[in-house]
């Protein structure tokens, strides 16, 4: 099972990005193999429609959960129909490494 985490940077020490569509990087974490991959978000500076474009990017990697600080109104229904679970974590100080550790507990 793959989990996407929105991240501000491309290392495990970087913090959780509070935005979904315009986050810096997507961390794709595979819970079975333990592999971590950082995908830069091409929609970071897009004027409009960053959310749906990011959903497409994340969905193409077959993730089943997304962890972020907030999800926009356009994305919620989209993720619901794609059956991707949204996890809202309002803790901007948490690092990616800490979240991965929480998932493994």
């Amino acid at each position: 099972m793959k989990v996407a985490i929105t991240s501000t940077g491309n290392s495990q020490e970087s913090k959780l990005d509070q935005r979904f569509g315009r986050c810096g990087f997507f961390t794709i974490y595979d819970t079975e193999t333990g592999g971590v991959e950082f995908v830069p978000n091409p929609n970071k500076d897009v004027q409009e429609g960053a959310g749906p474009a990011s959903v497409q990017l994340v969905a193409s990697r077959n993730v089943s959960k997304i962890i972020s600080g907030e999800f926009g109104i356009k994305i919620k229904s989209l993720l619901d129909s794609l059956k991707i679970q949204m996890i809202v974590l309002k803790e901007p100080e948490k690092t990616i490494g800490e979240i991965i550790k929480m998932l493994n507990n």
Binding site: L79, M86, L89, K90
Partner: peptide, 28 residues
Amino acid sequence: DSEWFSCKSCGCYFNNPEKEAKIEKCPL
């Protein structure tokens, strides 16, 4: 629209995309 849950241990919110499956524990 799906049901939303909140976890008291880590303070996160999450939804249940699989309507049939019961949510019993926090995914995080």
